[in-house]
């Protein structure tokens, strides 16, 4: 195909007002924070410059990278397992009414529940172990993915089903060849939500069950009145969360380019 007309417009400007605005706001917030803490609060309270100065001593240790590795790998593992299970159960719920009857009420009830409430229960089952974190992350991801997959696969257009039927699709062709791909945008949204909840709940488990990791270190550093170091962890978590979101937006564009939003 020939290039569409107007393809050789002036290159888009990198620095636009829209992009500059959050940067300006960020600098203003950091400045106010710095000035407010220095003039009003005790010296152990974190400041932006304090956090920057704490980076070498915090990130220069093995302990820091071990924390990052265990926490993030647990989250990623949980997301993979939870998504896979959520997709399977979700497709079954979306496509088989009877399965929906049995499961829907409970899955939707749990989905609405703050999962922190389950942490003590999970600790009872597995003890104060890292597995408690993994289990909570799996559940955190499983629930939204199951719900969005069920909704997405239930709502497939009749047009697609007709085409499938006309050309000889069997049940499994409909499930995995039509329902699943047409529900992809929903599923990705579910995984995105699950990821965010997984991060939150992983940190919560670490704190509540004293499982070593980034969340526990945020807590202990803060208890040691080393707020700056504690916030280095928080900033890293924030960067991780933002990258995950960017990754999900990208994967939706890549996997479901027809779905414009």
């Amino acid at each position: 195909m020939a290039a569409p007309p107007g393809a050789e417009r002036a290159p888009r400007r990198w620095l636009t007002r829209e992009r500059a605005a959050p940067v300006v706001a960020g600098i203003a917030i950091l400045l106010i924070w710095e000035i407010a803490v220095r003039s009003l609060l005790p010296s152990f309270v974190a400041t932006p410059t304090g956090i920057v100065r704490a980076i070498p001593s915090t990130m220069g240790t093995w302990a820091f990278w071990t924390d990052v590795a265990v926490t993030l790998s647990a989250i990623v593992q949980g997301v993979v397992i939870g998504s896979a299970a959520g997709i399977l159960v979700g497709v079954a719920m979306g496509r088989v009414r009877e399965i929906d009857w049995f499961l829907s009420t409970y899955i939707r009830a749990l989905y609405a529940l703050p999962l922190i409430a389950l942490v003590p229960l999970v600790i009872l089952w597995v003890g104060y172990q890292p597995e408690a974190r993994l289990i909570i992350v799996i559940i955190s991801v499983f629930l939204p993915v199951a719900v969005t997959t069920a909704d997405g696969t239930r709502a497939i257009s009749k047009d697609y089903l007709d085409v499938g039927q006309m050309f000889g699709a069997r049940t499994h062709n409909v499930w995995f060849g039509i329902a699943l791909p047409s529900a992809l945008p929903f599923i990705i949204a579910g995984i995105e939500l699950g990821f965010a909840r997984g991060i939150t709940n992983a940190i919560a488990v670490e704190v509540l069950a004293s499982v070593p990791g980034m969340g526990m270190s945020v807590f202990t550093k803060s208890n040691e009145l080393n707020e700056n170091a504690s916030l280095v962890y928080v900033v890293c978590l924030a960067i991780f969360a933002v990258s995950v979101r960017a990754l999900m937006i990208r994967s939706r564009r890549w996997l479901a380019p027809w779905y414009s939003r």
């Binding site: 047009d159 085409v163 992809l184 027809w258």
Partner: peptide, 18 residues
């Protein structure tokens, strides 16, 4: 049920976008 010797062209195309 749909027979393999019959094909249909749909008003709304019914192409799979993926």
């Amino acid at each position: 049920k749909p027979l393999p010797s019959v094909s249909m062209v749909f008003q709304h195309f019914g192409l799979f976008p993926w």
